[in-house]
Lab assay of single mutants.
Amino acid sequence: TETYETTDETEARKIAEELKRRGLTFRIERHGTTIRIESD
């Protein structure tokens, strides 16, 4: 499991693209301005 936290929408998108490219599944949670991406 890898966890990323960012407040930057663009960075979050880049992380999501990278995880997809590596064939990982992940979920995105939003907590206020923080975007949390957690891979399975």
Score class of each variant (00 low, 15 high):
E17Q: 09
L19H: 01
L24H: 09
E38A: 08
T33P: 09
T33H: 08
T1Q: 10
T33D: 13
R13Q: 12
A12Y: 04
E38S: 14
E2Y: 15
T34L: 13
E2M: 13
T10L: 12
T10M: 11
R30T: 09
T7G: 05
R13G: 07
E2L: 14
I37P: 00
E17K: 08
R36W: 07
H31N: 12
E38F: 15
E18Q: 08
H31I: 14
T1Y: 13
R30M: 12
G23Q: 03
R13M: 13
R30L: 13
L19G: 00
T25Q: 12
Y4W: 13
E38P: 00
T1I: 13
K20N: 07
Y4V: 02
A16Q: 11
I37L: 04
Y4D: 00
K14G: 06
H31T: 10
R36L: 08
T1P: 11
T34M: 12
T34E: 03
I35F: 06
R30V: 14
R22K: 07
T3H: 09
A12N: 01
D40I: 14
F26L: 05
L24P: 06
Y4M: 02
E2V: 13
E5G: 01
I28A: 02
E18S: 11
T7S: 10
L24Y: 08
T3P: 03
A12D: 00
E2Q: 11
E18N: 09
A12H: 01
T33V: 10
T6K: 01
T34P: 00
L24D: 04
T7R: 06
I37A: 00
R13L: 13
G23W: 01
R36F: 08
K20V: 11
R21P: 00
A12E: 01
T10R: 10
I35L: 03
T7W: 05
E38H: 13
E11K: 06
G23E: 03
F26G: 07
E18A: 09
T10P: 03
T7I: 05
D8K: 03
A16E: 06
R36C: 10
H31Y: 12
S39H: 07
E2D: 06
A16S: 07
T10H: 12
I37E: 00
E17V: 07
R22P: 01
R22Y: 03
A16R: 04
E5I: 13
Y4I: 03
D40E: 11
T6G: 02
E2I: 14
K20I: 12
T34C: 14
R13K: 11
R13Y: 11
E5H: 06
T6L: 06
T1H: 13
T3G: 04
E5L: 10
G23K: 04
E5D: 04
D40Q: 13
E11M: 10
T6A: 05
G23H: 04
D40H: 13
E2N: 09
R27K: 11
R13W: 11
T3R: 11
R36S: 03
T10Q: 12
T6Q: 01
E2F: 15
R13N: 09
I35D: 00
G32H: 02
G32R: 02
Y4P: 01
R27C: 15
S39R: 06
H31R: 10
R30S: 05
T7L: 06
T6M: 04
T25K: 14
L19V: 01
E5T: 10
L24M: 07
D8I: 05
K20S: 10
A16D: 01
I35K: 00
K14L: 12
E38N: 07
R27M: 07
R22A: 05
T3W: 14
E29G: 05
E38R: 12
T1N: 10
E2H: 13
E9Y: 09
K20G: 06
I37Q: 00
L19T: 00
R27L: 10
T33E: 12
I28F: 05
T33K: 12
E29F: 13
I35V: 03
T1K: 14
E18C: 15
K20R: 12
I15Y: 09
F26H: 08
I35G: 00
T25H: 15
L24C: 15
D40G: 12
G23M: 02
I35W: 12
L24R: 10
D8L: 05
